[in-house]
Simulated scan of single mutants.
Amino acid sequence: MELGAIAPDFTLRDQFGQDITLSSYRGRKAVALVFYPYAFSGVCTGEMGGIRARLDEFLTFDTEVLAISCDPVYALRAFSDTDGLNFTLLSDFWPHGEVTRAYGVFDERAGCPERSSYVIDKEGRLTWAVHHPKPAARSLDDLLAALRAASDG
């Protein structure tokens, strides 16, 4: 996906069964999209716990974080409850990986997202992207810096 392009819009269900639409943030907030392979897996649990620990830095009047996996809503609710994840987890379960494919980060062989992050500015444009191998955790400092830069724009 090309930086500067409008981010593909989507509506997905969160861990509480509520529909969340990306374009609803347009004009109000910059958004970090955090694609992660699997709920309850080691690296993903650590990353989501890291976001939870720094949530006051990630969620502001000008910023939002949306974490996306292909796990079903019920698994995301259990993940959220078990690990105290009090931010939005979105299920790209059905049609399986449709949004993940639109962002070009669906691993067809494993049936899950790659470990990827995108930042979308308040106008809905992609301003930053990074992709990591599944065993490697992303840098939350880099993600946060990119999110802050997008919210200032």
Rank of each mutant, 00 (worst) to 15 (best):
A146W: 02
T63S: 12
L85S: 05
N86I: 14
L140A: 04
L147Q: 07
C112Y: 11
A32P: 04
R26Q: 14
C44R: 06
A39I: 00
Q18T: 12
D121K: 09
L140E: 11
D92A: 10
E123P: 05
N86T: 15
L22N: 07
S116K: 02
R138G: 06
S139N: 05
D121V: 11
E98H: 08
S80G: 05
W128D: 05
E123N: 12
S117G: 14
Y118D: 03
A146Q: 04
V99M: 03
T127Y: 04
R125P: 12
A78D: 15
P133L: 12
E108Y: 00
L89S: 06
R125V: 07
G84S: 11
Y36Q: 03
R101Y: 03
H131Q: 15
P113F: 04
Y103C: 00
T21D: 07
D107I: 00
A136Q: 13
R109Y: 02
G111W: 01
S69G: 06
V43L: 02
K134D: 13
D81G: 05
D121S: 05
T45P: 05
A146H: 06
A145T: 14
V43I: 14
Q18P: 01
S116P: 04
P95E: 06
A39T: 02
S139W: 03
F106R: 00
I120L: 07
P37E: 01
